[in-house]
Design a protein around this nucleic acid. Structure first.
Lengths: 208, 208, 208, 208
DNA sequence: CATGAATGAGCCTTCATTCAT
DNA sequence: CATGAATGAAGGCTCATTCAT
């Protein structure tokens, strides 16, 4: 985590640095990203950089952390407060929708997140532990759904929770090809989500 | 692709080099992998390396290529020849099973493949084009299923094909946490696949 | 051209680097000259080198550039300001004299210049364009001489300008064999120049 | 010089190797020319190369040597045999003409020769001694001219011989810009030679 | 004589990090 | 706190030459 000197900085300077970092880490792999570029684009000297952050990893971790927090807030805000008023599939829909909206508005953060997601080596370098919070989130949702009688009792909650997480990633992948909305075949993102939910709800088997 | 000098090498030497390369590329990101380490671990000089391969990329591409071929052969063998004798879900089951078996026996290759799969920057460095063949595979399967009357006509084939690809990746991820089989909660991989297929078939909605 | 970091350096450090570079480029062909040797002899680290210059070529170009500027100033100073007071042959004599003086005091620069002058491949690597300014210089001189009535109207100005340039190179070659003054037969350089000018003025034909 | 094994080779194989060498040395600077390229283009193995030649330098020296011999023969043939029948300026003209013809028909050899001519370091690497034969040639010519009464007694024969050599180089340079004939302003090479000879004969001074 | 696999010193360049001012 | 000059390990790659077959 950043040093105190960083937090003591005026807000706009902090922001400039973070923006530069996001640009750099989104554009290049972790190892190819250069702290000199971050410093330069943030308009600070490399000496200052090392007075704010321990090293390269420190900044990267901070960005990842900020992203996670930001994303969680994104979803919570709307629905979570009145969770009990909604059905499982409504909440799932809202969750995916929020995730998509987040991705749309924060494509650089998604790019960074994916980089970490698919680099075990880096993950170990960044954290030792770190449990997957997404899966827990979906797991809770499923359990409530089963209690409500909305969700098939046959399913394995742990497993399906992980699959729903995976589908969430697929969704973002599908909709954002190289930071551009996926246009072919679909009227809009909403249509994709609804088709995906239909699949999640009913499966592929032909209804007799 | 490797130079002729590489193909002229005795089989066991070729193998030693490939093994060393797989080790290195599985253990580190592409940019962090060192050709000197490959050469050293293969027991060849750096000069020899460059007589076998154009450069670092050349070897990496070769590994990727070999992996793709190997994986395709894995699935085709058993069922694909008598495709018409099987139902959609049987083929899907075999596909996922093959994928898992492959991942189990080739965890390092899977690690390398994932690295490429989730690094657009690297993909463009390696190839210009490269279409996703997995999605096409699932798409064909789905279309046949619809013709057979096995698969719900309501679904969007293109979209679901991509989701099935995503689920395939999730499956591999779930079963192999850091190259170790996922033990908790499951008797064996077969159980995971069947539970996953149940979900794919029926969805999550409670059967009234 | 060098980066700002180079120009910000104390004069004596700049000079040390330039001196080391001139030594290296004078002693070896461009491709054989080593930037590590320059850095070492200048007493800087290789890292510093690359903070001052883009690359190897950058420094070489800079040396060439400095040489050209320095040489032009050499000639201009004395006569060029009062050009109209002198005859063609007087100016020519001064030009050759200046060139010789320059070569005498800057034998390493001449060595470097010649290397470039006679290596088209290198020239294209260094610049794309680059016109020969020497020829233009002599051409102007000749045209004025013809207008004054000093110079034979029969000659082809363009051609002779190139020959005078060539003779200039020959002169430097003659006088400096391996950076040592050519001693045999001649009392001094002045004598050589005057004999050469006599030839240029009168040609070889016996005066009847 | 090449080893006996080289001279024992069938003529056409020798020729293939020489051709490949000339191509390579003409296209690249001595240090950038690759013996592997020569071997490859000659259709021999690198192992064979080192059975024919001591090293890289050995081949280069041989090419230079062959070139010198070939060029000398070029000039001698026509005139030298009946030298006494011609005036100094006629012989000079023929010499320059031969030189040009040679350069025209052997542009690659000229390229190689120039490379050596302008790389003192390389010259020392190739030979220790090597006197300039061209200058001796012109010197003899001039002395005879003076004896005949054709040539001004005032001139310094040694110096002028060197200048005539330099002019010879200039001539080749002028006419062959990057192996292409210099077209602008001149009807043909003959015109250039005659204009140059006019200069050499009469000098630049306006005839009163 | 022919072959070509093997070698490794050596080059240019990058970039995270330190430290004196 | 800010600055940016200085550092040097490390990496990809080249190519003349050797040597075993």
């Amino acid at each position: 985590m950043p040093k105190d000197t960083f937090y003591n900085l005026p807000q706009d300077k902090q922001k400039r640095i973070i923006e530069a970092a996001i640009d750099e880490f989104a554009a290049h792999s972790y190892h190819k990203a250069r702290v000199t570029a971050v410093a330069k684009n943030a308009g600070i000297s490399i000496g200052s950089y090392y007075q704010y952050f321990e090293d390269k990893k420190d900044l990267f971790k901070y960005i990842i952390d900020q992203t996670a927090t930001k994303k969680i807030n994104y979803i919570n805000q709307d629905i979570m407060r009145n969770e009990e008023d909604y059905s499982f599939f409504e909440i799932l829909r809202e969750t995916y929708l929020s995730g998509m909206k987040f991705a749309k508005e924060n494509s650089r953060l998604v790019a960074i997140g994916n980089k970490l997601l698919n680099n075990k080596e880096l993950q170990q370098e960044i954290w030792q532990d770190q449990k997957d919070k997404s899966t827990d989130y979906f797991k809770n949702l499923l359990l409530k759904g089963q209690n409500n009688g909305e969700i098939d009792q046959e399913i394995d909650v742990e497993l399906i929770a992980r699959l729903l997480t995976g589908l969430h990633h697929s969704l973002v992948d599908i909709i954002y090809k190289d930071n551009k909305i996926f246009p072919e075949n679909f009227a809009n993102e909403m249509e994709i989500i609804d088709k995906m939910l239909y699949f999640i709800k009913n499966g592929l088997k032909k209804h007799s």
